[in-house]
């Protein structure tokens, strides 16, 4: 056994900073993916056919190609096309958000479909218009049922975020590689950030549990 954790001690602040860097874009990607995913889900159950086609095609493309490819296209290929020099931060939010919205839209669509049709009818009979019916009656019930599936998606996104190391973004993963290259030892820094990822996911899991408990007051 040739393990020496004392050597990474000077690098700990540098690696810890990676938590913040990773969380920053993961947070925005989750929010962006969730909002876009909700809109896409509403398109999928809409009676206007072109909206359904659009949402289905979108999902098919973003689920049907590798995330790393989408990330590379946004970061390396888009500037070539538009001349706009996109930052790694913005590319990461875009790629992860766009990709996540495809999965989120499927989760939410299933959640909406699982709400008893009678809820919609009762709301219609009371004269409640579409928007309020969705935001106040149907979506809150759908969200409650799909919370575990959504948390799963957010956890996956948090871990997959390590892919941004491939476009030179100094996230948690990339920092472990930098430290590894500096020390010529990889095991210690990789293990260290592994624990940090695990802690972040545990945090998300706990938030999910709390939300679930809060939403079950009506049971």
């Amino acid at each position: 056994m040739n393990l020496d954790f004392s050597q990474i001690v000077p690098y700990i602040p540098f690696m810890l900073e990676g938590i913040w860097v990773t969380l920053k874009f993961v947070f925005f990607a989750i929010i962006f993916g969730f909002i876009l995913g909700t809109i896409l889900a509403l398109f999928k159950i809409n009676h206007v056919r072109p909206l359904r086609w659009f949402a289905d095609a979108y999902t098919s493309i973003f689920r049907g190609t590798p995330l790393i490819l989408q990330l590379m296209i946004i970061y390396f290929a888009v500037p070539q096309l538009t001349g706009y020099d996109i930052t790694p931060f913005l590319s990461a939010i875009l790629a992860f958000g766009l990709n996540s919205s495809a999965y989120v839209s499927e989760i939410i669509r299933a959640g909406i479909n699982a709400v008893d049709r009678g809820q919609t009818e009762a709301a219609i009979a009371l004269g409640i218009p579409y928007r309020q019916r969705m935001t106040d009656i149907i979506l809150p019930q759908a969200m409650k049922n799909i919370l575990p599936a959504l948390m799963n998606e957010f956890i996956t996104l948090t871990k997959e975020s390590a892919l941004v190391s491939t476009i030179g973004y100094l996230d948690l993963m990339r920092r472990a590689q930098v430290v590894g290259a500096d020390l010529y030892r990889n095991f210690e820094p990789l293990l260290f950030v592994g624990v940090l990822y695990w802690l972040m996911v545990m945090g998300l899991t706990i938030i999910g549990r709390l939300l679930e408990r809060r939403m079950s007051v009506s049971d």
Binding site: G118, A122, I124, A125, L126, G127, I128, P129, M215, S218
Partner: peptide
């Protein structure tokens, strides 16, 4: 939608809004 406001309806399976309290069901 406007016309439906003056027509109340009661269903076989109630269809109360389960995530709202009884009072909120009535006031929403």
């Amino acid at each position: 939608m406007k016309a439906r406001e003056q027509i109340g309806m009661v269903f076989q399976h109630f269809h109360l809004f389960p995530h709202l309290s009884v009072l909120d069901n009535l006031t929403y």
